[in-house]
Design a protein around this nucleic acid. Structure first.
Length: 290
DNA sequence: CAACTAATCATCCTGCACTA
DNA sequence: TAGTGCAGGATGATTAGTTG
């Protein structure tokens, strides 16, 4: 790019005699003025040329500066995530590699869940896994922190399994299992109802969550086994009515009736507590005012 | 037996409390 | 303040059970 030239059309020869005081005659004043303009013009031209030159220099250096900045930014980004020493890898591939290696029949170095993560034995297992995985040709570009994070996560899995196998935690383990079962029932219920939603019900339904669905507990009524329904106490009347409407819509479908457990009767309200992380916006119209 | 639903299990992840 | 332990929960694969 070339700078814009400031083109002044000044006379190449003086129009009249020079160096006369401005006040001496109109012509002399005009000449002085023209000279001044001419000088200014020259200086402006030089300035423009200089600025232009500087721009050219800057422009020529810009690409390399941009490249270096981009490189720096990406490096910073990687370092930032690394520096957090992420506890979780969010990298299923690495997680699976760790699991496979740890559980492979030929591996005799496994985590001892009865010991802490930092016990000498478990640290040694982590080092072994790290060494073996980072030596793998197709994984050599994976950074060590990612592998170590995956190892720690897997250690936690092993430890949790071990913990709930302890006899003194049997009832706790059962409670965990039962709560998971209940949650998955509520999730299925939410999805089933969602599938028969009408246009004008969408708004009210929008933020309905699994927590706002009833619990379905195993039960037998008049010799028929099925579910006892326990609605959450914190659900609004409005949403309760919509749930009932959706449910009867579902049960009007022969296939649904035939393939799903029967909801035998309503039991007492669920003793679950309202979800604590429920936004006020979502709660609007869904929760009863307590 | 095929087509489903429901349950179970292993794994991974989030988020919080605690502490060295 | 980073690392650890842990509870709760999401997800996906697999298995069990049911029904036409």
């Amino acid at each position: 790019m070339t700078g814009r030239r400031l083109a002044f059309n000044y006379p190449s020869t003086p129009l009249h005699g020079r160096d006369r005081p401005l006040s001496a005659s109109p012509q002399t004043g005009e000449k002085k003025l023209l000279n001044a303009i001419s000088g200014l013009s020259r200086r402006l031209t030089l300035l423009a040329a200089d600025v232009n030159k500087q721009f050219t220099v800057v422009n020529s250096r810009l690409p390399s500066i941009e490249d270096r900045l981009a490189a720096l930014e990406s490096k910073n980004c990687v370092e930032e995530t690394n520096s957090k020493k992420r506890r979780r890898v969010n990298n299923p591939k690495i997680a699976e590699v760790v699991r496979r290696l740890h559980n492979s029949e030929t591996n005799c170095r496994r985590y001892k869940p009865e010991q802490g993560q930092t016990s000498p034995h478990n640290e040694a297992v982590t080092s072994y896994l790290l060494g073996a995985i980072s030596a793998s040709p197709d994984l050599h570009d994976v950074d060590n922190d990612t592998i170590v994070s995956a190892c720690k996560t897997y250690y936690e899995t092993v430890r949790k399994n071990f913990k709930y196998k302890q006899p003194d935690l049997a009832s706790r383990a059962e409670a965990v299992k039962s709560s998971a079962r209940s949650r998955s029932r509520r999730k299925r219920l939410l999805e089933a109802r969602q599938s028969v939603l009408a246009e004008d019900e969408v708004d009210l339904w929008k933020s309905a969550s699994v927590d706002l669905m009833s619990d379905e507990e195993d039960g037998i009524v008049d010799g028929v086994s099925g579910w006892i329904v326990r609605p959450p106490s914190f659900r609004s009347q409005e949403l309760t009515e919509l749930c009932a409407k959706l449910q009867s819509r579902l049960e009007a479908i022969p296939k649904y009736r035939a393939t799903h457990h029967r909801r035998l009767q309503n039991g007492p309200n669920s003793d679950r507590r309202p979800p604590v992380t429920y936004s006020s916006e979502a709660a609007n119209g869904h929760l009863t005012v307590l």
